[in-house]
Simulated scan of single mutants.
Amino acid sequence: MTSYHLTEERLSAYTRYLHAEERSPGTIEKYRRDTEAFCRWLSGAPVTREQIAAWKAFLLSQHYAPTTINSMLAALNGLFRFLGWDECRARFLKVQRRLFRDASRELTRVEYDRLLEAARARGQERLVLLMETICATGIRVSEVKYITVQAALQGRADIFLKGKIRTILLPGKLCRKLLKYAKKQKTVSGEIFLTGNGNSLSRRQIWGEMKRLCNYAGVEPSKVFPHNFRHLFATLFYRASKDIVRLADVLGHSSIETTRIYLVTSGAEYARQLNRLGLVS
């Protein structure tokens, strides 16, 4: 019987493979983190179906959400596929499609406006513009680097990610604000959102600045992270256009099923829809 053991060399080779496949930095970081967590949990034991089942049970005992567990299993399956260990593939937890989002994680338009107001009051011009850019275009935080002076001049940005190129349009008002900010920072070309040392803003820096703003804006930290601004864009775009196919193209989704996840309404909205049916006398 073949014995499968995970090693640091194999994990590193998988990371290099993900880079070669041009996966996003966020995906690579997550897959590395999840596979390393499984490796530590194994403590040198071989990979078996029984161990994988025990890993799932352990994650459930730690009160991870089913969707989170499935995302961690997806990272493992990617590793096993890379290594040719097809018989080790993990089975996902069966999760019924959610009818509504957790209100504690849903960022509303009112809360978004409060975040902008708080950042302006604190003189955080870059953060204001960054939040507006993500929310007005629906880009991923890893795609912020494609917002350049040239893109603002042209009113469009070409984004290269996951082996695909997609073009997004930038609202005219946003372009004017981006160019005004770039001129103030003496940035004549290239990326607009830079650190004081002229380096690209990292995902961690952006996340940290947003989280620190929560107390001043009176918004729950659980609602404030870059990807939630992308969710807010998707919700507002769909309400205005009712075109999920076009929204999928704008967001860069290969599957409309992925886009549907972004359009799940809050529990409060779901309750209002039920009440409007008028089926209780």
Rank of each mutant, 00 (worst) to 15 (best):
G155A: 01
G155P: 00
G155N: 02
G155M: 01
A157T: 03
A157G: 02
A157K: 04
D158P: 01
D158I: 03
D158S: 12
D158V: 02
I159T: 10
I159V: 11
I159R: 02
I159N: 05
F160A: 06
L161V: 07
L161T: 13
L161I: 11
K162R: 15
K162L: 06
K162Q: 08
G163A: 09
G163S: 10
K164P: 02
K164F: 07
K164Y: 10
K164H: 12
K164S: 10
K164G: 02
R166Y: 03
T167Q: 14
I168Q: 05
I168E: 06
L169D: 13
L169P: 09
L169Y: 07
L169W: 07
L170C: 12
L170Q: 06
P171S: 09
P171C: 14
G172L: 11
G172F: 07
G172E: 12
L174P: 04
C175R: 13
R176M: 12
R176L: 15
R176C: 11
R176I: 12
R176P: 09
K177N: 00
K177T: 00
L178P: 02
L178R: 08
L178K: 01
K180F: 02
K180G: 14
A182V: 07
K183W: 04
K183E: 06
K183L: 04
K183T: 07
K183N: 06
K184C: 00
K184S: 08
Q185R: 15
Q185D: 04
Q185T: 06
K186Y: 02
K186F: 07
K186R: 07
T187H: 13
T187V: 15
T187E: 13
V188I: 07
V188W: 10
S189Y: 02
S189D: 12
G190T: 06
G190A: 09
G190P: 14
E191D: 09
I192W: 01
I192M: 01
I192D: 04
F193D: 00
F193S: 05
F193A: 09
L194H: 08
L194S: 06
T195V: 08
T195E: 08
G196S: 12
G196A: 13
G196C: 05
G196K: 15
G196W: 03
N197P: 00
N197F: 07
G198E: 02
N199F: 08
N199H: 14
N199V: 01
S200D: 12
S200K: 15
S200V: 06
S200E: 12
S200A: 11
S202P: 01
S202L: 03
S202D: 04
S202W: 00
R203K: 14
R204F: 07
R204D: 13
Q205P: 11
Q205N: 10
I206T: 06
I206P: 04
W207R: 12
W207G: 04
W207L: 07
G208M: 10
G208F: 13
E209V: 05
E209Y: 05
M210T: 00
M210A: 02
K211F: 07
K211T: 14
